[in-house]
Design a protein around this nucleic acid. Structure first.
Lengths: 342, 342
DNA sequence: AATTGGCACTCAGCTTGCTTGAGTGCTAAA
DNA sequence: TTTAGCACTCAAGCAAGCTGAGTGCCAATT
């Protein structure tokens, strides 16, 4: 990454910011007047030309102004973007918006996602808190029919999962007792997600008499506890993308893409850092080539566990999106933590 | 509703069907050729003119063909539309699509909604089964923190609801025991939704010592059991409306409207019959003036309890939508019933 | 009395050409 | 190295013209 001269940096930053604000390509003259640089438009023109050749800017047509390329956005985000705190207004909006959900982890996550979509006017995605430090609190098996029962599993981060299971023989007290004994001695207090099929086999084998009845139940426990939380991945504010003129009719296939759970999950989960920004084709899916994805993780009890994300046009207002997300994911982590500890 | 001559009926039916297929206004000549009527275009023209004046057809512009008015659609749906069974292909699609969800009521409903959206290329809404005959099966209270607990309620139709509650004193065995006693003697087996605040008061008063601890817990039970199932109302396939050229940019405000739970719930719930069709401005919300809403109820254990709906442009293919919905809601009702009884 | 062929008329949507103006690159002077 | 000046480009907006599907009406036909 070659160093740019101070002036080039200044120009690039201005182009990016003006383009983000207006959506119109930025010309040399307009840039001068609204950035207060003290040099002439011709000078800016020369510099822009070089930035163009270096790949930071592009021209939509020969006689139009410049817009940032992906490389331009990337350089801006990495080196030029101011790292301010959330503005007061947004902060209040978040504080006020999330307050009514305090105390309930699930509601908090949902509320956070809705707020994020509203604030950024982009699509927002949330994943529920599922840390590795997470422990199984309770397992219940409630008969629903003769051969079916609802299994309910509660983890220490306050997340409830359920699933219907079916067995071949009738339910009776003995089976239930046996099941609860096993649960008590093998599962309660165990980190969720650490139950291997092999273990299940071993445990099931220990009940000679009811092996074939118990096996599906135990498999269900394993399944439920380890279930990739795809089902806890929720997209909101998709409609916001439609009002963004950036995507013309490309908004429709994009929305269709985002509505599929699996690829979306892949997109979100492929982020490693606490805060990751992927711009345009840095996203591996070609459906996202005109979009940027910002993922911010939040921690519950000091354990990195869930995330909130924003998906919008590459032209999104990175600075405000990121500052909002930083604040919101911090707050969310704290609120969930205290909901569980209190 | 004045009777129309046989020929007028035939013409109206053809206009509606052709317009539904093509989306283009139907002219006299085109109608002749693709409907095989044995009269001249001039005759059709005269008839169309009358239908126009009677209010069944309208002309978008002076020199265009005719399209059905709302009155025209209504007459078609009530009197002219063939009532065929689902076509073989759709039927297979439904059978194959719903099979993997068999056994789990919640999954069945979700799958049905997704299928419906896919088949009709419209938005689809599902509500979970919540009949009046519905009974509380089990209530669990799982402590999550010092002052918080997760309450889980399971009803006889296999639907699970949960909610976090918080109390002022610490949880202890006595409180839990007392709570479960109350649950056992007052709530289990009771029709959900029939627990009045007054009753809660009475019951809470019966535990002199722990009145203030028990009250919020009991209130939570009442709340959970009676909770309007707004939260069980889910919209899917909203993106389908965008690809429908019928709504130009009106699709965006429409989607925004549909994404609000309350009005959508109102729209669905205002249907009384087993199958209700509301066309255009027959819907009370003006956001739906260009849309039709078809609601079909399904029964679980003979008790009319949930519904699936389709929302799409007034130009939707009523015949195929309705036949699909009839088949699907029947199937859904049966599958849920057998999942619970088996 | 109902049906039909013929004809003049309408008008949305497309095509075409013109104009405008923001913006560029280049050159020559400061 | 910067700047003023100038010729050039091209998207977007507008007006005029053309096209063709479709109509309404009338007079002739069955």
């Amino acid at each position: 990454m070659p160093e740019l001269s101070e002036r080039k940096k200044q120009i690039l930053a201005n182009v990016v910011e003006m383009y983000i604000k207006s959506g119109e390509p930025v010309g040399s003259k307009g840039l001068i007047s609204s950035s207060g640089m003290n040099c002439s438009s011709a000078t800016v023109r020369n510099e822009m030309n070089e930035l163009d050749q270096m790949g930071y800017l592009v021209q939509p047509h020969t006689s139009a102004g410049r817009i940032p390329s992906e490389k331009g956005y990337r350089y801006y985000v990495d080196n030029l973007m101011p790292r301010r705190d959330v503005d007061e207004f947004t902060k209040r909006m978040i504080d006020a918006g999330i307050a009514p959900a305090a105390g309930d982890p699930e509601k908090l996550v949902n509320r956070a996602r809705e707020l994020l979509a509203d604030i950024t006017k982009c699509a927002a995605v949330s994943t529920a808190p599922v840390g590795e430090m997470n422990v199984i609190r309770k397992i219940e098996l409630v008969p629903v029919g003769m051969h079916t029962a609802m299994m309910v599993l509660l983890t220490s981060n306050g997340i409830l999962k359920s699933r219907l299971c079916r067995i071949d023989s009738d339910f009776n007290v003995t089976i239930l007792e046996q099941f609860y004994n096993i649960v008590e001695s093998f599962f309660i207090g165990k980190p969720s997600g650490e139950i291997s099929p092999a273990e299940i086999q071993t445990i099931a084998a220990s009940v000679e008499s009811n092996y074939f009845v118990m096996l599906p139940l135990l498999a269900a426990v394993s399944d439920l506890s380890g279930s990739t939380n795809d089902s806890r991945l929720i997209l909101g504010g998709g409609a916001n993308l439609l009002s963004r003129k950036d995507y013309g009719d490309k908004a429709i296939p994009l929305l269709e893409f985002l509505n599929k759970k699996e690829p979306l999950s892949e997109v979100i989960r492929s982020s490693k850092d606490d805060l990751s920004i992927r711009i345009g084709s840095e996203n591996l899916f070609k459906q996202l080539e005109d979009s940027s994805v910002v993922v911010s993780k939040y921690s519950v009890k000091g354990d990195n566990s869930g995330s909130i994300s924003v998906i919008g046009p590459t032209r999104m207002d990175y600075e405000s999106v990121i500052s909002s997300m930083r604040y919101l994911s911090d707050l969310l982590g704290h609120l969930i933590t205290s909901a569980l500890e209190e």
